[in-house]
């Protein structure tokens, strides 16, 4: 009984939090140390989280020829293939904050994005009816919904923190880290994603899943 109380106290103080966060930070550092070459994912995250132009240059370096080859294969037209580099890499820049680490590799993300832009470009060039776009045919995996809902429910969640604590361990480590950042450390989505070095899109989807899981756990309790 006493132990439980103490644990709860620690949970709510800065000290308890700092310990948890520090250990998390360590694990991510050791991950980086294993990679000598900067991964595509890290580059994409740098582009998404702080508009890192150098990182974008490196991605451009790595992928523009691949995109050109894809364009040549699908359009058999050098001009269009070149336009595709522009279209696809512009899309990479614009959508980098939406990249979700949990849904696949950076190269897979860039591939589908390039294919989709190529498809739309070809349709436009052939002047085909534009009722359907590539994103309708290859829909981004559903999950774009209630990011705003999380904010609205925030008050309710804080009240229930002590209640939730017992369920906290049932979240996966990455989900717990995100919940701690947002609800305990009171960071914004942007701050939290920068701190955890994950894309904003990943942060939002992890938060959504974590809140949904906590909800269902509490629901079971009733």
């Amino acid at each position: 009984m006493y132990r439980n109380y103490a644990k709860q106290e620690g949970f709510n103080t800065e000290v308890g939090l700092t310990v948890r966060l520090a250990s998390m930070n360590n694990s991510s550092q050791s991950l980086d140390a294993e990679d000598t070459v900067v991964s595509d994912e890290s580059l994409l995250i740098a582009v998404g989280n702080h508009q890192d132009v150098n990182a974008f240059n490196q991605l451009f370096e790595r992928f523009s020829k691949k995109i050109f080859a894809l364009g040549m294969k699908l359009t058999r037209n050098e001009q269009l293939a070149n336009d595709l580099i522009q279209e696809a890499m512009l899309n990479v820049w614009q959508k980098a904050p939406l990249y979700d680490l949990d849904k696949g590799s950076a190269k897979g993300w860039i591939f589908t994005l390039s294919r989709n832009r190529c498809f739309d470009m070809l349709r436009k060039q052939k002047r085909q009816p534009n009722c359907v776009s590539a994103d309708d045919i290859w829909p981004p995996e559903s999950g774009g919904e209630p990011t705003t809902l999380v904010h609205e429910d925030r008050g309710g969640l804080e009240v229930e923190l002590s209640l939730i604590e017992g369920y906290f361990d049932q979240l996966s480590d990455p989900q717990r880290a995100v919940v701690e950042q947002i609800y305990l450390h009171d960071r914004t989505h942007e701050e939290a994603s920068a701190y955890l070095q994950i894309p904003l899109g990943t942060l939002k989807s992890r938060l959504r899943l974590a809140v949904a899981k906590l909800r269902s756990l509490i629901g079971v309790e009733d």
């Binding site: 998404g48 451009f60 040549m72 522009q86």
Partner: peptide, 24 residues
Amino acid sequence: LESPSATDYSSMVASIVQSAQLSS
């Protein structure tokens, strides 16, 4: 495949990074 050297990719990149990113 070698893409045509005539294209100036540095200006392409420079113009791309001027554009706004999407937050959702």
